[in-house]
Amino acid sequence: MKRVAVQAGDFDVAAELAALEALGGGGVASFTGVVRGGGGLIALELEHYPAMTQAQVDRICDEAMARWPLLGLSVIHRFGRLEPGARIVFVGTASRHRTAALESCAFLIDWLKSEAPFWKKEHFADGATGWVEALAEDEVKAKGWNSDD
């Protein structure tokens, strides 16, 4: 099972986990990213490259399935305007082995951060806005998964 969704709307984490559990592998790992509040932030606006996003996330998922013995995975990434507390991203993996489930989940979220065409703009209560800068450490984390480097 490979489920990839790029959507504006929210998603149901329980339903996603149940679908992965139903694969019968015995191990399911997941990560949910949520908009962090504080500092006067009122919303995050997620822009993406529609013609590329789905195909690129698909490639990242194929890479995870090639590296680990997975029974299934699910990746959902939202776009549009999201307020603090809103879910942004979900990654779930199912395997017979806990190490495969946990490692592939970490790999997928690291790669989404530096290999998927999304950009975040912050909107603050005083009217200020600013584009989130990519962190060098995120690129390093994603590259850390490249065994051939």
Binding site: D110, E133, D138
Partner: peptide, 12 residues
């Protein structure tokens, strides 16, 4: 056919 130009991505 298509060139895209953008800052480093910040998804996830």
């Amino acid at each position: 056919r298509e060139l895209a130009l953008f800052p480093p991505v910040t998804g996830g």
